[in-house]
C-alpha cells in the first residue's frame, strides 16, 4: 500500500472531479513548463543509476481538469470519478498493462544521480505515470511502486507549483514463487454477452512470457510458478469484447482482470421461496397416518 501517496491521491481525485478555477485565484497555465524530481532513498541511503520512466497520460486544462491523451485515450481507463487510492492503483496497473501490451515508449527516461534523484525538466503540464523500480543496497532489496503525479500541483494557499518533488517510500521486496491471474466479470443481467473464453498475455519485465486461455474449464483462473527474483510481471487481456471495458488490479501475487458492461440496476427480485416444503411434508405425514388408521378401522369394521 502506498500510504505515503495518499494525500497526493486524494488531491488527484479532487482535481479530476471538479474544475479548480472557481476555487483558485491564480488560474492554471496549461502551456507553462514544469519539472519533476523523484528521490529514491531509503533512510540515509540514496539509490543512484535507477532508470526512471515517466508517461504523460493526461493533459491539463486551464480550468484544472484533465483528460487522457493519445495513446492512452484508447485504453478503457477512466480517470474521472475516481474516489480512492485503491482506484488510482487500479488505474496505474491497467495503464501499465496497456503500455506493456502496446509497447508504448516513455515520454522521458532518466537515471537517478548520486543523490538518488531522477530529475525531469521541460515537462508539459498533465498527469504523469511514474514507473517504479526495484533497488538493492547492502541491507536489502526494495521496491518503489508506480504512482501518478499531477503537474502542476495546487498549493494549499493559492495557485500552483510547477516544480514538483516526489519521495516514493520503498517497500521491502517480498519474493514470490507463484502468481495467479483471475478473470472477473461485472455484467450481471448481460451474461449472454460474455465470451466463452478470454486470452491473456503474461509479461515478464515487459517481454511476453506466456499466453493462456481462461475459461470455465480452469474456472477462469491460472497460476504460474516463478523464480524468486525481482522480475516485474504484468498481464494483459487480448481482444477485449467491444461491449466490455477492462480494469486490471494487482494485490500481492494475484492479478484480477475485470471486464465490465455498463449496467443499470434492475428492479429488486422477489424472494420467490413461497413453497413451504415442510408444511406439505407434515401435512402429508399426518394424512398418511390418518388414512392408514382409517384403513385399518375400515377393514376391521367390514370383517
Amino acid at each position: 500500500m502506498r500510504k505515503h501517496l495518499l494525500p497526493l491521491i486524494i488531491l488527484l481525485a479532487f482535481l479530476v472531479a471538479q474544475p479548480l478555477s472557481a476555487n483558485a485565484i491564480t488560474p492554471l497555465e496549461p502551456n507553462r513548463k514544469c519539472s519533476l524530481k523523484v528521490h529514491f532513498t531509503k533512510d540515509d541511503y540514496r539509490f543512484s543509476n535507477l532508470e526512471t520512466r515517466i508517461y504523460r497520460v493526461a493533459e491539463a486544462h486551464s480550468d484544472g481538469t484533465f483528460d487522457l491523451i493519445a495513446p492512452f485515450s484508447g485504453s478503457s481507463v477512466s480517470i474521472h470519478g475516481i474516489k480512492s487510492q485503491r482506484e488510482w492503483n487500479d488505474a496505474a496497473v491497467t495503464l501499465l498493462s496497456y503500455i506493456v501490451d502496446r509497447k508504448i515508449q516513455p515520454d522521458h527516461t532518466v537515471l537517478s544521480d548520486a543523490q538518488g534523484t531522477a530529475s525531469f525538466t521541460d515537462l508539459h503540464t498533465g498527469l504523469y505515470l511514474v514507473l517504479g523500480n526495484t533497488a538493492e543496497n547492502d541491507i536489502g532489496i526494495y521496491t518503489f511502486e508506480d504512482f501518478f503525479v499531477y503537474l502542476p500541483t495546487p498549493l494549499e494557499s493559492e495557485g500552483f507549483s510547477y516544480d514538483m518533488e516526489a519521495r516514493p517510500k520503498p517497500g521491502e521486496f517480498v519474493p514470490k514463487t507463484e502468481y495467479t491471474v483471475n478473470k472477473l466479470w461485472k455484467d450481471s443481467g448481460y451474461t449472454s454477452k460474455r465470451p466463452k473464453s478470454v486470452t491473456v498475455d503474461i509479461y515478464k519485465d515487459a517481454v511476453l512470457y506466456e499466453t493462456v486461455i481462461l475459461d470455465s474449464s480452469n474456472n477462469w483462473s491460472y497460476s504460474w510458478k516463478t523464480p524468486e527474483d525481482s522480475s516485474k510481471w504484468t498481464v494483459a487481456e487480448k481482444d477485449v469484447p467491444d461491449s466490455y471495458t477492462v480494469t486490471i488490479s494487482s494485490s500481492g501475487s494475484v492479478f484480477s482482470i475485470t471486464n465490465s458492461i455498463k449496467t443499470t440496476p434492475g428492479s429488486p427480485p422477489k424472494t420467490g421461496d413461497t413453497f413451504p416444503l415442510w408444511n406439505y411434508v407434515i401435512a402429508m405425514s399426518i394424512s398418511g397416518f390418518l388414512l392408514l388408521i382409517f384403513g385399518i378401522w375400515h377393514k376391521r369394521k367390514s370383517q
Binding site: 474516489k83 480512492s84 472477473l184 461485472k186 450481471s188 483462473s221
Partner: peptide, 17 residues
C-alpha cells in the same frame, strides 16, 4: 466509500457466478 462503481465483480466457478 472507496468505490465509484458499486457493482461487485464475480468469479465464475464450476459454471456459477
Amino acid at each position: 466509500g472507496d468505490y465509484s462503481d458499486p457493482v461487485m465483480p464475480v468469479l465464475q466457478v464450476e459454471g456459477k457466478d
